[in-house]
Simulated assay, not measured.
Amino acid sequence: MALKIVYPICCGIDVHKTFVVACIASTIKGVTTYKRHRFSTYTKGLNQLSQCLYENNCSDVCMEFIKYWMPIFNILEDSCNITLAHPKYVKAIRGKKTDKKDAKWIADLFKHDLVAGSFMPPPCIRQLRELMRYRFKLTNFMSSEKNRLQNCLTVSNIQLGNVVSDTFGISSINIIEKLLENPLDTSFDLQHLIHGSMKKKLPELELANDGFITPEQAEKLRVFKQHS
């Protein structure tokens, strides 16, 4: 029993870092013909790919979901229905492997609708995802750097974290900045550096501030301050 042709005109794209190989499969009365083209992954080349698909009346495209997919997807998204397939589902048959065979194999699988596509959200959701991932990355980076600063204070036996609820509050930062002016002198007056309810903790802060900051730890604190 012959498999049903779901996409009479479709394209399989074998994706690489610097080029793509597109194989357009056109099926008429059960007979499939193939047109293969190679394009660069520069914007000019991808626009040529889009034009080639348009000229061949091909709007259904299948390609592997590998790390180089995004620029191709961005160019073709508005003019084509794109199916992104996990590489393991479009693995070429055993034998001599070539880019042309890979593209043809993808097209053959796709024309029979034998490829399970990955979910791809609309552009606005993808942009939001990118922003949230970047924000998450920056948040983790900042948390890591704050931990480094706290470690510098702990090593120097500056125990501000034992007295204040937020080591990065206004009063604590004022004390740290004062410490960095002269790391060898921790006996300065704290009265004018602290604010509000912190004044009630002045005796504890004076005890917590009685440490010794080495030049190495002081330099680490300065680097954090410069980039925070």
Rank of each mutant, 00 (worst) to 15 (best):
A2R: 11
L3G: 05
I5L: 01
Y7S: 02
I9Q: 06
G12N: 05
D14K: 04
H16T: 09
K17W: 10
V20E: 02
A22C: 06
A25Y: 08
V31H: 11
T32V: 01
K35F: 04
R36I: 14
H37N: 12
H37L: 04
S40P: 02
S40I: 04
T41G: 05
T41K: 09
T43S: 12
K44M: 09
N47I: 11
Q48T: 09
L49A: 11
C52V: 14
N56A: 14
C58A: 08
S59C: 14
E64K: 01
Y68Q: 13
W69L: 03
I72G: 01
I72A: 05
N74L: 06
I75W: 02
S79F: 10
N81Y: 14
L84G: 02
L84H: 08
P87F: 08
K88S: 13
K91P: 00
I93W: 12
R94G: 12
K97G: 10
K100W: 04
K100F: 04
D102L: 05
A103T: 09
K104Y: 08
W105I: 07
I106V: 13
I106L: 00
A107R: 06
D108E: 15
L109C: 06
V115G: 01
G117A: 07
G117H: 07
P121K: 14
P121N: 07
R129N: 13
R129P: 08
R129W: 09
E130W: 01
L138P: 00
E145D: 07
N147R: 02
N147I: 03
L149F: 12
Q150T: 14
S156Y: 02
S156R: 03
N157I: 01
Q159Y: 08
N162L: 12
V163C: 05
V164L: 12
N174F: 06
I176M: 13
I176E: 08
E177F: 00
L179S: 00
E181S: 04
N182E: 03
P183E: 03
F188Y: 07
L190V: 09
I194V: 12
S197K: 15
M198S: 11
M198A: 10
P203D: 15
E204F: 12
E204Y: 14
L205I: 07
F212W: 14
E216W: 11
A218V: 07
A218T: 05
K220F: 10
K220H: 10
L221M: 15
